[in-house]
């Protein structure tokens, strides 16, 4: 399956196409701020302004605030998968947000961003999202394709 560091690098490149704050490095992503802004772009009715307002922008080096942000993000995403997409996320794709917030764990971060990707290619505005992905470098597109296949295939891999 996918090399998690390569997955993270490619998905960071994809996230940067949204041009949201705090999205310059993998470490930046661990605060959850960029991911929350991307989700708000993907589906502003579900991940709405009120929800976005609960994400602490100044989490910086405070790992407890980061973990708190990441928990809110993961909870809302899983509800989105269930209520909007009608898709059950398998256990192997569930990230440990404590490891992300506290240790900056790349493997768990890759899983979290992989879930964001799944929202993007399945939501109401997926046409726009997929076309944006198709403008990326071919090598990045390949990793993105594999990540989608891995996440959204019926049987756990």
């Amino acid at each position: 399956s996918l090399d998690k560091a390569e997955l993270c690098d490619s998905l960071l490149t994809w996230l940067q196409t949204f041009q949201v704050p705090s999205c310059n490095s993998k470490y930046d992503l661990t605060s959850g701020v960029a991911i929350a802004h991307v989700l708000h772009r993907i589906d502003p009715s579900w991940f709405n302004e009120t929800w976005l307002g609960r994400i602490k922008e100044e989490s910086g080096a405070n790992w407890r605030l980061k973990v708190s942000n990441l928990k809110k993000i993961l909870k809302s995403m899983l509800e989105y998968y269930h209520d909007v997409l009608g898709h059950q996320v398998s256990d192997e794709h569930l990230p440990d947000v404590n490891l992300i917030g506290e240790m900056g764990d790349i493997t768990e971060l890759g899983k979290l961003v992989q879930l964001v990707l799944g929202c993007a290619v399945s939501c109401e505005k997926k046409q726009e999202q997929i076309q944006q992905i198709m403008t990326l470098e071919e090598s990045v597109q390949h990793v993105v394709m594999t990540a989608i296949q891995e996440l959204l295939s019926k049987e756990p891999s």
Binding site: G86, H87, S122, C123, M134, E138
Partner: peptide, 30 residues
């Protein structure tokens, strides 16, 4: 040139995959 062919094949795989995603009913990711 084999590399050219491989490149073209790669592009085809990607295009087919993403177009298949586009044609899926919204909200049905699997």
């Amino acid at each position: 040139d084999p590399n050219m062919k491989a490149g073209a094949a790669n592009e085809g795989v990607l295009a087919n995959f993403f177009n298949s995603l586009l044609s899926k009913k919204t909200g049905a990711p699997g």
